[in-house]
């Protein structure tokens, strides 16, 4: 499989560790995008791209993705070893995971926080609520930034360490009484997305008010 013809080569500027296993990979941005969109990334034009949410702001000079290397993965171990000056191939941005609401609740686990980070850094945080989950505190990516940006509208949930809400994001969602006109944006593993969506629907939230993006 070859990458689409519209794919182009860019130079890596930064590849930094984040949390226990996460990586923050950046390259010089020369394209416009809407926060919440994704790009296909590959190290080789003959290798199919993997899709990652852009995590940087749409006015930042660099474009960045947040990812967790998967030991058995084809691409992510390679990406994790890239150094500044290496080249990668990226597709044009695409996708419609876009928050056009004034009031919304964002729900993310792991690197699923990336599109919300892009939205916040592009000026769309406002009074939105972020419910972020991880096993370990260290993997609550950009926790300090979220605390500063959102204050008490930021809820961190952790399943293996103390100090924040104790439990999964679904447990937090279940503990709240949400106004029926609340819009929800979910991003993370398909398990989390499906569980959270089922829970919200069982609470009476119309499924048309739940927008989801899953990793694949």
């Amino acid at each position: 499989m070859k990458v689409p013809a519209s794919t182009k080569s860019v130079m890596v500027c930064q590849n930094l560790p984040r949390g226990k296993r996460g990586r923050w990979l950046s390259w010089e941005r020369d394209f416009d995008f809407l926060p919440g969109q994704i790009v296909g990334v590959t190290d080789d034009p003959n290798r199919p791209p993997r899709w990652y949410s852009l995590a940087s702001g749409n006015k930042d000079s660099w474009a960045s993705i947040l990812f967790t290397p998967v030991d058995s993965g084809e691409l992510s171990p390679i990406l994790s070893r890239l150094v500044p000056g290496d080249r990668i191939w990226i597709t044009p941005p695409q996708g419609s995971f876009l928050d056009k609401k004034k009031q919304a609740v964002w729900v993310a686990t792991g690197t699923g926080v990336a599109p919300f980070l892009a939205m916040a850094r592009s000026g769309f945080a406002g009074t939105r609520v972020l419910v972020q989950g991880a096993r370990y505190l260290e993997d609550l990516y950009f926790r300090e930034e979220w605390q500063k940006r959102l204050g008490k509208n930021y809820i961190a949930c952790c399943t293996r360490e103390q100090g924040v809400f104790d439990g999964r994001v679904t447990r937090y969602l279940e503990s709240q009484k949400w106004p029926m006109d609340t819009h929800f944006f979910l991003c993370g593993s398909s398990e989390m997305v499906v569980d959270a969506r089922d829970l919200l629907i069982s609470q009476g939230i119309p499924f048309s008010q739940i927008v989801a993006e899953v990793y694949f």
Binding site: I38, W51, Q94, G95, S96, F97, V193, F207, S208, I210, V211, A212, E213, V214, F216
Partner: peptide, 19 residues
């Protein structure tokens, strides 16, 4: 419809049916 499909199928947010 894009938005309605997205509420049924999250893939719509990544690979639009028009594409």
């Amino acid at each position: 419809f894009d938005e309605e499909r997205a509420s049924l199928m999250p893939v719509q947010n990544v690979h639009a049916m028009d594409d």
